[in-house]
Computed example of a mutant assay.
Amino acid sequence: MPASEEPLDVPTESATSPRVSRKAVLRAAAALGATPLLARGGVALARDRTTKARSLEATPSCHDGDEPTIEQIEGPYFKPDSPLRTSLVTNSTPGTRLTVTGYVFSRTCQPIAGALLDFWQADDNGNYDNVGFGFRGHQFSTSQGAFTLTTIVPGLYPGRTRHLHVKLQSPGQPVITTQLYFPGEPRNSTDTIFDARLLMDVRQVGPARAATFDFVLDAPQGPTTPPTTPPSGTWAAGTSYHAGDVVTYGASTYRCLQAHTAITGWEPPNVPALWQRG
């Protein structure tokens, strides 16, 4: 997104704002194409918006204080085994283009890498694809906890305001289910499920829309010591697996649900969208 289309909320030091949250730094770094610097357990921005290099004071602790993202009902239209993809549209897909970006954080404001995000929604006419996998897809957050979804603004159907469905799972933690909403929708005031805490920040970008939302998961996160040897089994990073393939990992057997090339972090216990135990 060109910087001229929206002012960047770049954190700066001031007497009234002595600390810079990890979330603000990650957003600013992504917008500027910069790489956050990790220092003393905190985060500093490599450069500000000018050409003059200026390191921000490291933040030794996080004071965002965000509560976990609230859960909502799944609804009647969820289907398991969605395709692994970040875009739910093609060039010919009807509807107003929508790009949703954000981060997945723990309650300690640390980005969660490899978190599962499984999205589904109605099409431009307010219909769900219950035969195939139209407007359905899952992905995993990046090493910085970021995600991007390319889709359309969902159509309306009786009884509901516009919304996106999503299931999230931090690696090895329970799945939570929730919904995301659009500000300024007339039906927000009459939808009995709507919750303002799940409103996205949405702006118009030419004929399209761009939205942001950060998820916060109640996931334990702290210093960990990686095992000296990986668990035994036939699963291996770099292998191309097909639906129906069976592997072992640790003391368990898993069946592949979706064709993919395995990477470190997508071990079978961590990604139930790709592997079914037993």
Results as ranks from 00 to 15, higher is better:
218 D>E: 02
207 P>D: 15
77 Y>Q: 13
53 A>G: 13
38 L>K: 13
42 G>V: 11
79 K>C: 00
251 A>V: 06
157 Y>K: 09
13 E>A: 03
250 G>C: 08
99 T>F: 11
183 P>D: 13
117 L>Q: 03
62 C>Y: 00
244 G>H: 13
254 Y>F: 14
131 V>H: 07
131 V>G: 03
109 C>I: 04
16 T>V: 07
5 E>I: 10
264 T>Y: 13
152 I>N: 13
228 T>M: 07
43 V>Q: 06
2 P>L: 10
173 Q>S: 05
18 P>F: 10
143 S>K: 12
72 Q>V: 04
251 A>Y: 04
278 G>T: 00
236 A>F: 03
174 P>D: 02
28 A>R: 06
267 E>H: 10
222 G>Y: 00
90 T>V: 02
92 S>T: 15
208 A>H: 15
17 S>F: 07
158 P>Y: 14
264 T>P: 01
134 G>C: 06
81 D>N: 03
34 A>S: 06
244 G>Q: 12
13 E>Y: 04
255 R>E: 09
164 L>G: 02
230 P>N: 12
49 R>Y: 08
256 C>P: 01
141 S>D: 08
84 L>R: 02
24 A>P: 05
4 S>P: 00
29 A>C: 12
67 E>V: 07
50 T>C: 07
20 V>S: 13
97 R>A: 15
89 V>M: 09
152 I>P: 04
129 D>L: 09
142 T>V: 02
137 G>R: 08
159 G>K: 06
276 Q>V: 00
237 A>W: 02
228 T>F: 06
176 I>E: 01
214 D>E: 07
171 P>Q: 04
12 T>Q: 10
205 V>P: 01
28 A>N: 03
249 Y>T: 08
115 A>R: 11
276 Q>H: 02
28 A>G: 05
175 V>C: 01
187 R>G: 01
16 T>R: 05
117 L>H: 03
212 T>W: 06
258 Q>V: 14
10 V>Y: 07
168 L>R: 09
158 P>T: 14
277 R>N: 01
221 Q>W: 02
140 F>I: 06
4 S>C: 03
92 S>W: 14
168 L>N: 04
221 Q>D: 10
206 G>T: 11
92 S>M: 14
181 Y>G: 01
213 F>P: 04
74 E>A: 12
1 M>V: 11
60 P>M: 01
35 T>H: 07
